[in-house]
Measured scan of single mutants.
Amino acid sequence: TRVETATETAWISLVTALHLVLGLSAVLGLLLLRKQFPAHYRRLRHALW
Score class of each variant (00 low, 15 high):
L48R: 05
R34P: 08
A39K: 10
W11G: 02
H40G: 12
H19D: 02
T1Q: 13
R43V: 11
S25K: 00
R2Y: 14
K35E: 05
G29N: 01
L44M: 14
L18E: 02
A10H: 05
V21A: 15
A17D: 01
V3F: 05
L31S: 07
V15C: 06
V3L: 11
L44H: 02
A17V: 10
A6S: 15
G23I: 14
R42P: 06
L33K: 09
H46Y: 02
E8R: 06
L22M: 12
E8N: 04
P38F: 02
E8Y: 01
Q36L: 06
Y41T: 13
H40M: 10
E4N: 12
R34L: 07
A10P: 06
A10V: 07
R43P: 09
V3N: 08
V15R: 02
A17E: 01
S13R: 07
F37C: 06
R34A: 12
K35Y: 09
A26S: 08
R43N: 11
L24S: 00
T9S: 13
W11H: 09
R43H: 07
A47W: 11
S25C: 15
E4G: 08
W49D: 00
Y41L: 08
L14V: 08
L31T: 08
L18F: 15
E8I: 04
T1G: 08
R43W: 10
T7H: 13
G29F: 15
H40L: 06
A17H: 02
T9R: 11
L44T: 03
A26I: 14
V21F: 14
T1C: 10
L20A: 12
L33G: 08
A17S: 07
L30H: 02
L14M: 15
R2T: 14
H40Q: 14
L32T: 05
L31R: 05
L18H: 00
S13I: 15
R42V: 09
E4D: 14
F37I: 03
L28N: 04
E4L: 12
H46G: 09
G23W: 07
A39M: 11
K35Q: 13
A26L: 13
T16H: 03
A10S: 11
L24H: 00
A47L: 11
L48C: 14
L30A: 13
E4R: 11
W11Q: 02
H19K: 05
S13T: 15
E8T: 02
R45E: 04
V21I: 11
L28H: 06
L28E: 08
L14H: 08
A26R: 08
T16N: 04
L30N: 01
T5N: 09
Q36E: 11
L28V: 02
L22C: 14
L48F: 11
V15M: 11
A39I: 12
Y41W: 15
T5V: 08
R2C: 11
I12L: 11
A47M: 14
G29K: 01
T5R: 06
L24A: 05
L48T: 10
A6R: 12
S13Q: 10
W11L: 06
Q36S: 15
P38R: 03
T16F: 06
H19A: 15
R45G: 06
V3Y: 09
L20F: 13
H40I: 02
R2W: 14
T16Y: 05
L32G: 06
V15I: 13
R42F: 09
Q36Y: 04
R34S: 08
A6H: 08
R34C: 12
V3P: 01
L14P: 03
H46P: 02
T9D: 06
L24E: 03
W49A: 06
R34W: 05
W11Y: 13
L48Q: 02
T5I: 05
T1E: 13
E8K: 07
A6W: 07
F37Q: 00
L14Q: 03
A39G: 14
V27W: 08
L33C: 13
T1R: 10
Y41G: 03
L32R: 06
A26E: 00
L44W: 08
L30D: 05
P38D: 02
L31Y: 03
H40R: 10
H40D: 06
H46N: 14
W11S: 00
L14Y: 04
T1A: 13
H46R: 12
E4C: 05
G23T: 13
W11M: 09
W11E: 05
Q36V: 06
K35L: 11
L31A: 12
E8W: 01
T16D: 07
H19W: 14
S25F: 05
T7G: 07
Y41C: 13
R42E: 12
A47P: 05
G29T: 15
Y41V: 13
R45S: 07
R34V: 13
W11N: 04
T9M: 14
G23D: 03
G29H: 05
R34E: 06
P38K: 03
A17T: 08
S25H: 00
L22I: 15
Y41E: 10
A17P: 01
W11C: 09
K35D: 09
T16S: 11
L20E: 07
H40T: 10
G23L: 15
V21C: 15
L32H: 08
A39T: 14
V27M: 11
V15F: 09
A47G: 09
G23E: 03
F37T: 08
L30F: 14
L48A: 08
W49S: 03
F37K: 06
